[in-house]
Simulated scan of single mutants.
Amino acid sequence: MFFFDSNDFITQYQMSKKLSELEDEKEHYMQRITQVQKDREELLSNSALLEKYAREKYQMKKPAEDLFIIMKKEDKAK
């Protein structure tokens, strides 16, 4: 039973280790969710910040503006 059962010592150790990893991962995601909610509230409450985000992330512009996208040239000689 110590070595051959589905609840043997090795399996229990592996499951305990996996549980610890998953709890750490859960904590990371909970912190990330809190940060995203904070950022969302800030965006929705500040129209200037929302406009800046839309311009940078989605390349939105006003009707009378021209949009220029500058991209870095990749070095192919590597």
Rank of each mutant, 00 (worst) to 15 (best):
M1S: 15
M1N: 15
M1Q: 15
F2E: 14
F2S: 15
F3K: 07
F3T: 13
F3P: 01
D5A: 12
D5Q: 14
D5K: 11
N7E: 08
N7W: 02
N7V: 12
N7M: 06
D8H: 11
D8N: 15
D8L: 09
F9V: 13
F9I: 15
T11H: 10
T11D: 11
T11F: 10
Q12K: 15
Y13Q: 15
Q14K: 10
Q14T: 13
M15K: 15
S16D: 10
S16R: 08
K17F: 08
K17S: 02
K17P: 00
K17D: 04
K18P: 05
L19V: 03
L19T: 13
E21M: 02
L22W: 01
E23C: 07
E23M: 10
E23R: 14
D24T: 12
E25I: 01
K26T: 04
K26M: 01
K26V: 03
K26L: 01
K26P: 03
E27C: 05
E27K: 10
E27Q: 13
H28P: 06
Y29N: 06
Y29D: 03
Q31I: 06
R32L: 14
R32I: 12
R32W: 04
R32C: 12
I33L: 07
I33T: 00
I33K: 01
Q35G: 04
V36Q: 05
V36G: 01
Q37C: 04
K38G: 05
D39M: 12
D39E: 11
D39I: 02
E41S: 11
E41Y: 02
E41T: 08
E42I: 07
E42A: 07
E42L: 08
L43S: 05
L43C: 02
L43K: 01
L43G: 02
L44T: 07
L44H: 09
L44W: 01
L44K: 11
S45Q: 10
S45W: 00
N46T: 01
S47I: 07
S47Q: 13
S47V: 06
L49T: 05
L49E: 08
L50N: 03
L50W: 04
E51G: 01
E51R: 10
E51I: 07
K52P: 06
Y53E: 00
Y53F: 03
Y53T: 01
A54I: 10
A54E: 14
A54H: 10
R55P: 06
R55E: 03
K57E: 14
K57N: 11
K57M: 03
Y58Q: 11
Q59M: 04
Q59T: 02
Q59I: 04
M60W: 07
M60I: 09
M60N: 11
K61H: 12
K61L: 02
K61R: 08
K61Q: 09
P63R: 00
A64W: 13
D66M: 14
D66I: 14
D66K: 11
F68T: 15
F68G: 10
F68H: 14
I69G: 01
I69L: 05
I69W: 00
I70S: 01
K72G: 06
K73Y: 00
E74R: 11
E74N: 09
E74L: 10
D75C: 04
D75Q: 03
D75V: 00
A77F: 09
A77Y: 13
K78V: 10
K78D: 12
K78T: 13
